[in-house]
Design a protein around this nucleic acid. Sequence first.
DNA 1: CTTATCAACTTGTCTATACATTTCTTTAAA
DNA 2: TTTAAAGAAATGTATAGACAAGTTGATAAG
Lengths: 232, 232
Amino acid sequence: MNKYQIIHDDLVKDILAGKYHEKMLPSDYALMNRYHVARETARKAIAMLVDEGYAMRIKGKGTFVIQHNRYSFPISHVESYRELANRLHLKEHTQLVAIQDAEVPATFDSKAETVVLATEITRVRYLDDEPIIIDRDYVLKAVIPEILALPKSLSLFELFEQQLGLTISHATKTITIEALSIQDKQLMKLPEAGVVVVVRSETFLSDGRTLSYTESRHRADKFKSVEFARRH
Amino acid sequence: MNKYQIIHDDLVKDILAGKYHEKMLPSDYALMNRYHVARETARKAIAMLVDEGYAMRIKGKGTFVIQHNRYSFPISHVESYRELANRLHLKEHTQLVAIQDAEVPATFDSKAETVVLATEITRVRYLDDEPIIIDRDYVLKAVIPEILALPKSLSLFELFEQQLGLTISHATKTITIEALSIQDKQLMKLPEAGVVVVVRSETFLSDGRTLSYTESRHRADKFKSVEFARRH
DNA sequence: CTTATCAACTTGTCTATACATTTCTTTAAA
DNA sequence: TTTAAAGAAATGTATAGACAAGTTGATAAG
């Protein structure tokens, strides 16, 4: 592993363990001595912390930990449902509703003139035995011609990355509020009319190709998104 | 201005102008020659682009522009309503509903044992003459003892930064869906029952103090959030 | 014609150094 | 006692160079 990555990971571990609660993080020079690295290497590690929202640097003063309430539902990085449930220690299970070939609906900002072929996977996500989320993935056949089996212990992302050697780079997400569809009511066992929170995303590979489109329909009363934002 | 900042701004301008549409951005060495700077300086400029989601670097290949649809409602950085409306060229105006002293409600994750005194500012935001957002700011009296006048041409953020010399560092945001309150119906002229999208945020200064809490209540049918997320 | 190798170009990591700027404390002068 | 200057410590910016590693295309060998 890289030197700055090691330093970064050490610091994150200590931050999460509360070692720097309300205190200053080691200065550039302190890290230089502790790890016997050049200053730029130490700075790179700290720059990552700042980037992730763990820390804040103030010129002339030092580097300080930013206290987070990281218990809620963060959506500001690419993370799958399963990874998320795992991290928050929620009891989760998934019900496969359907898996079939389909075209990507025009709902996904498609400037595409031609139809895009994909494998459509519809799943219902349960948290604490309540149906909370309907996930519908469109995995492009241009990238993954066929999905042989849905893994029990891996998320789709992890499957693609670990088994198929693909590298996921980034995603764009939009959040809107829409009226409940008939299928929403059925799958989430909601009797009355109402709304769902729809998170639509497009996931990209490192080579720029689109890997998949996903539509996540969340029960509105269970939805909470948390994010961290920096000024400028 | 810094060298890497200049290079960065030049590149952003060119990207937005479409000069690198589907093409490779200048390599490290190309920027070195063009601007007569060291490689690390050029890399810093590009690192900023990557950080902002403008570009993607692939080892051995080059740096590539990420195509964005940046027309929607981005919430992934600290930006005020007015700055936003301006950027998207929307016709906007604001109606001041009330400004008074108040305590910060417990809704804002307050682990605070004592009451926190603040100036409460309630405003209704109109886009294209429709009331879309109710903003309620709680500006802490510990930081700003008194708000003398609400500026017509500046946002609250800009006022604090430019007039009072404060530096805003970051914010945390949560998005939830809640039932319409009576005041929601009145101020947004909504006759029926329904839901609003509530964005609650806490804004921090560079010295770590909390500057303000804000509750933004958005008309659900007009709400759209767009964000960019990177994997790992 | 096919294959293997090499060279050129790219990004990634790391070092060592220099000077600027901000903050805070200590010391010395008035 | 108050004020001013000096110094130490921290982050910010910038340079020059080195080597590693991935990608691509040209070239040479078979």
